[in-house]
Design a protein around this nucleic acid. Structure first.
Length: 334
RNA sequence: GGGUCGGUAACUCCAGCGGCGAGGAGGGCGGACUGUAAAUCCGUUACACGAGAAACACCGAAGGUUCGAGUCCUUCCCGGCCCA
């Protein structure tokens, strides 16, 4: 019981893309004195606003947001960096007497923070990766997989030979640390959250979600996604960069390069975003502590969802709930 | 009315020299994920059967040729295009 009270509270607002997480999180923050840490692998990049559906200053309604615009699109960001920075913000916000809210759709990033996964003893080695990649190109994916089997049979069994990225990572891990990644993963899997955690997943019927995704993509196009990507392209960003693998960016790059017609690019973007949403849902289903919120149960009203989350936080985390003070000059949107 | 091209695993599009218990792609659905994660990868997609000398959903329909037909022939039905 004593321990329970010394834990830092952490509220997660997760969910598939276009489920309205950002708005809910802001409204929640206003009610409980929260500050928001974005958990989004694309919103960390500067200049990628429209395609990543980055929250605008106005939408933030005065609530501080972190982990947005913390990297240049030409650098490659990763979970390890995210976790380290986000964790620091969690502690900072708490020290300030506020409630940290982790909000986003990147399940892996969320879990890294939430379970305090340790990444410090490993790092990336581009040269070795390239070496392995060309080995695979020459001898086939199975040959590469065999190399892993020789060194870490357990990992080899878990990773499909075609999943080259993970095979390479496992091999790299072994080379860099002398340990098996399967052992490391097993150890990390045992971790319990160090936080007083409240994990929400906002979702809704698949069909509705898909319609919402289609509309969001149309909106992005109207907002000038193509121009945004053209600008990034002019900056010298290429398809093989991590940032340009984001949805909306790779497709529009193909349009700009004349590889596919505009309409086709939009169609593919919608389709791939639907696929993505499905993968997100799969991820969140594995989060045992997750509490699912169906938008339909709240009439699709983000305010009501936020009120519900605030009440739950009050009840379970003993967090004080206040009426959201009106923001001067700001008209709340319903 | 004439000509022509087409109708395939049933959501869609397409492969399929006479040996097919019919293949692929898309879409849908499910899953994995511990330093690229908006990435990467896997599975599944009529009903039944349940790995067997054993089960005929069987390629628009009905006949025919053949040891054997999705594949060839005839007629019919449906759709696209062209000519009247």
């Amino acid at each position: 019981m004593e321990n329970e009270n010394t834990k830092i509270p952490l509220i997660v607002v997760a969910g598939p893309t276009a489920a309205g997480k950002s708005e809910c999180a802001v409204e929640l923050a206003r009610r409980i004195g929260g500050e928001i840490i974005s958990a989004d692998s694309m919103q960390v990049y500067r200049h990628m606003d429209i395609g990543s559906a980055k929250i605008t200053l106005e939408e933030m309604m005065g609530i501080p947001h972190y982990m947005i615009d913390v990297a240049d699109p030409c650098e490659s960001f990763d979970v390890a960096r995210f976790k380290e920075m986000a964790k620091a913000y969690v502690h900072e916000i708490h020290a300030r007497g506020h409630i940290p809210i982790l909000c986003g759709g990147t399940g892996f990033y969320i879990q890294a923070v939430t379970r305090d996964i340790d990444f410090t003893d490993t790092f990336a080695d581009p040269d070795y990766r390239n070496e392995l990649l060309s080995y695979a190109e020459k001898n086939g994916a199975d040959a590469l997989h065999s190399r892993l089997a020789a060194v870490d049979p357990c990992a080899a069994e878990q990773i499909h030979p075609n999943n080259m990225k993970r095979v390479i990572r496992a091999l790299e891990f072994y080379r860099e640390t002398g340990n098996k990644i399967s052992d490391h993963n097993e150890a990390e899997k045992q971790r319990e959250t160090p936080y007083d955690l409240l994990f929400f997943v906002i979702s809704e019927a698949r069909k509705t979600l898909y319609e919402r995704i289609d509309r969001r993509v149309d909106f992005m196009m109207e907002e000038g996604l193509l121009d945004e990507v053209a600008y990034l392209r002019a900056m010298g960003l290429r398809r093989d960069m991590v940032s340009m693998q984001g949805l909306g960016y790779k497709e529009m790059l193909d349009v700009l390069d004349g590889k596919i017609p505009y309409e086709e690019g939009v169609r593919i973007l919608k389709r791939d975003t639907r696929h993505f949403a499905k993968r997100q849902l799969t991820w969140f289903r594995r989060e045992r502590d997750a509490r699912w919120i169906d938008r339909a149960d709240f009439g699709g009203d983000s305010i009501k969802i936020a009120e519900y989350m605030a009440e739950t936080a009050q009840r379970e985390l003993k967090i004080a709930v206040q009426d959201p003070s009106p923001i001067p000059g700001h008209v709340g949107k319903a």
